[in-house]
């Protein structure tokens, strides 16, 4: 009987370890215009949408996608988000940024703005909207006398939904859209010590978005 219980616990632990950290990513791409290859001088900018204070796109997600795009394999010249926003102040703040391509067309009527785009050799401006949220959590952990005396079990589901809109600056037109949807479940069993088994939902959504953007831009 004791051996059976031990086996059951072992199976439960192994299945937890196998299923924990699993994420599912669904990617959708819609090309509106044909893209041409970026040349060595061309740059791109990734910007997060933050006009709604409740659902701001995280800065670390934008940095993550940017870092992935500018890695050695692709070597795309990505201008850091904060650097671009500061240089274009006040036209790309959360409350003033162009919401659609027609606003951008209006904006570049100002010679100083057009000059800035030209100085940075910006070919594509990519807006990313969305965020990662915990959509469900269950269970509870009780700790007595500090973290070395915790018992219980908690689990939660994270969902990352992001959409990128790619604006072609040379044509002043929407070039395409890419969306990613990632879900994952994290577990936190605690038997004396809490053992976090975390699903890398945001990181997987970042990889998925960056991979798709690479294909789109190259």
């Amino acid at each position: 009987m004791r051996a059976q219980t031990d086996n059951l616990l072992l199976i439960l632990l192994i299945s937890l370890l196998m299923t924990a950290c699993n994420t599912v990513t669904v990617i959708d791409e819609r090309k509106v215009l044909n893209t041409t290859d970026l040349n060595d001088k061309d740059s791109i900018v990734l910007l997060g949408r933050r006009h709604s204070h409740q659902h701001e796109t995280e800065r670390d997600y934008i940095s993550c996608v940017g870092a992935n795009l500018s890695d050695e394999s692709t070597a795309i010249n990505v201008i850091p988000e904060h650097q671009f926003i500061d240089a274009m102040y006040p036209y790309f703040e959360a409350s003033t940024a162009p919401m659609d391509i027609s606003n951008l067309v209006e904006l570049v009527q100002q010679p100083t703005i057009l000059e800035k785009f030209s100085d940075y050799h910006i070919r594509y401006l990519i807006w990313i909207e969305g965020n990662t949220e915990t959509i469900e959590n269950t269970g509870a952990i009780t700790c007595v006398g500090g973290p070395a005396g915790c018992f219980g079990f908690a689990m939660w589901n994270d969902e990352a939904i992001y959409e990128a809109k790619i604006w072609d600056i040379s044509q002043l037109a929407l070039s395409g859209k890419i969306s990613t949807e990632t879900q994952g479940t994290s577990y936190l069993p605690a038997i004396i010590l809490p053992i976090p088994l975390l699903a890398s939902v945001k990181a997987d959504a970042c990889d998925g978005m960056a991979t798709q953007l690479k294909q789109f831009l190259k």
């Binding site: 102040y89 006040p90 036209y91 703040e93 959360a94 409350s95 003033t96």
Partner: peptide, 10 residues
């Protein structure tokens, strides 16, 4: 301040 200054200009 940054936000209000941007909004004044715009």
């Amino acid at each position: 301040f940054r936000d209000v200054a941007a909004n004044i200009i715009i």
